[in-house]
Simulated assay, not measured.
Amino acid sequence: MRIRVLGCSGGIGGSHLRTTSLLVDDDILIDAGTGVGDLSIAELARIDHVFVTHSHLDHIACLPLMIDTVGELRTRPLTVWTSAPTLEVLRRHIFNWSIWPDFTEIPSVERPFMCFRELRVGDEIDMGNRAIRVLPAQHTVPAVGYAVRGPGGTLAFSGDTTVCDEFWDAVNALPDLRHLIIETAFPDRDRQLAVMSRHLCPDMLAGELEKLRHEADIYITHLKPSQMDITMREIAETLGSRSPRMLRNNHVFDF
């Protein structure tokens, strides 16, 4: 199994900052942020499933454009998987004919370019030699994380979350956890903002990682572009023994 980071930033800018999206092999996306826009049309057309963590724009920005671009090139609908509250937001506020066409009805209700599938925390979707498990998360809107399991181990992704004991209970129950991708959006000087926006800062991250029972490689995602250096410096000072690394675009996990 191969997971390629298409985007992992908390913002955009220049040639290297893209918002959240992970490409699993060549047919599954975890989130559909601006990093998806770097894929070729042929690569976009090979994607059959999109697993969305939550409804914020930095995680769904390319979903409407992607389905508009490749819908007619596909022989079956693109399946968008997410929680019921997030599905409702996508239906009501994105694919609503005002912001964007409803591709669950195009070219017809019987043969649409896109379909929605509801997920609940704890669900595990079998994808042949891979499986996607839904993890709990806590954010300003209903949100989930995901664990991607293949023959060589498991990668867990927090999505956007604040302090969440249930997330760690679920992560600690995963078999053969190899990699953990967890968000830290703000430096400690903005702790109040992190708490208000239900993200993490380094000090909060340190408390959360005390709950991790696996020996896994830890990668930091969702850093705010103007604060990346200070946030990673604080993480290194606070969590040096765990050696967390900054996730970067085009990082590839092979396992």
Rank of each mutant, 00 (worst) to 15 (best):
I3F: 05
I3D: 10
L6G: 10
C8G: 01
S9T: 07
S9R: 08
G10A: 15
I12L: 12
G13F: 11
R18H: 05
D27Q: 13
L29V: 03
D31S: 13
G37Q: 05
S40T: 15
I41E: 15
I41A: 15
A42K: 15
E43R: 06
A45H: 12
R46M: 14
D48S: 15
H49M: 08
S55R: 12
H59K: 08
I60V: 15
C62R: 07
T69N: 14
V70P: 15
E72C: 14
P85D: 05
L87E: 12
L90G: 04
H93C: 12
F95H: 03
W97R: 11
S98M: 14
T104I: 11
I106G: 11
M114N: 10
I125T: 01
D126S: 14
G128E: 13
N129I: 04
Q138E: 11
G145F: 02
D160N: 13
T161D: 14
E166Q: 06
W168Y: 10
A170S: 14
L174F: 08
L177C: 06
I181M: 12
E183P: 01
F186Q: 12
D188C: 13
D203T: 12
L205N: 05
G207P: 01
R213Y: 08
E215G: 05
Y219T: 02
I220M: 07
I220D: 09
I220N: 05
H222A: 06
R233I: 06
R233M: 13
E237K: 11
M246D: 00
M246R: 11
M246V: 00
F253E: 08
D254H: 02
D254P: 00
